[in-house]
Design a protein around this nucleic acid. Sequence first.
DNA 1: GGGAGAAAGTGGTATATAGTGGTTCGCCGG
DNA 2: CCGGCGAACCACTATATACCACTTTCTCCC
Lengths: 142, 142
Amino acid sequence: MFLGQYRHSVDDKGRMIVPARFRDMLTGPIYLTQGFDQNLRVLPEAAFVSIYERVTEMSTTNPTARQLRRLIFSTAQQVDIDSNGRILIPKYLRDVASLNDEAIVVGVGEALEIWSPDAWETQNQQLQDAESNAERFAALDI
Amino acid sequence: MFLGQYRHSVDDKGRMIVPARFRDMLTGPIYLTQGFDQNLRVLPEAAFVSIYERVTEMSTTNPTARQLRRLIFSTAQQVDIDSNGRILIPKYLRDVASLNDEAIVVGVGEALEIWSPDAWETQNQQLQDAESNAERFAALDI
DNA sequence: GGGAGAAAGTGGTATATAGTGGTTCGCCGG
DNA sequence: CCGGCGAACCACTATATACCACTTTCTCCC
């Protein structure tokens, strides 16, 4: 289970540390994909396969399904953790998320998200809005 | 069952004592999450897992679900009790609850809450207001 | 009621490891 | 054959965590 948030540097080659807490949960193949909110997602094999299956069984004749499929697979990349615990983020994915020299890595349960500090700040503002939270949580009925 | 309230110091590394009364009830994994009122919640495993499952099964393509997932998981952390009976509260969670050098730990039945002294004072004022209590609690029909 | 002992609470220090940056080696292209 | 780019390796620095020692408070026994 991926939890918490971390700030890490991205060097000019696009290398970024995977927070140590997450590393032992990422032993198998890792998939890096474009997220839905100007961010990136890091998926362990199981999570990626489950998305793959759901998207694949969607109708080919549905234009939206085709677009979703393109979005997910054309931007996806299988990456490895190097001997120092880093992954290499391809240039085109860094551009998608506007990553420069720093990134915020966020645990969201079964996956990770990578954000530019600015985008995360904006996102966080929204998340800390107490009133909307009341509505969000109401759906959960905790 | 967690009952009562305690005042404890938080050192500059974010370490805080778990009141001795609560410690033997917190043997398994412990989860620290953001609460609903600028406070933190300490949950035993079972309680957190039930939240995890409900949030995880929500759709990835639903923006509200994504935000809810971020809100809950990015502000959560699995923590351990060290050999001295303390837990380490990550910086971002101390910020959420405005914790500096002291915290109030409150038992609320199946969980604990951690408050900054100021926030607790405000909360306590409300709780001690007998007249509005009568009205508010009447609506609950216990 | 007082004293002693044990447990709870606090703070500091050292060390392992996480994190960062640089350099070299190899491969591919010109 | 030479040059450039990319990837892996290596070494250093910073930080987090685990360990240790001390103080204070509470409880039990005399």
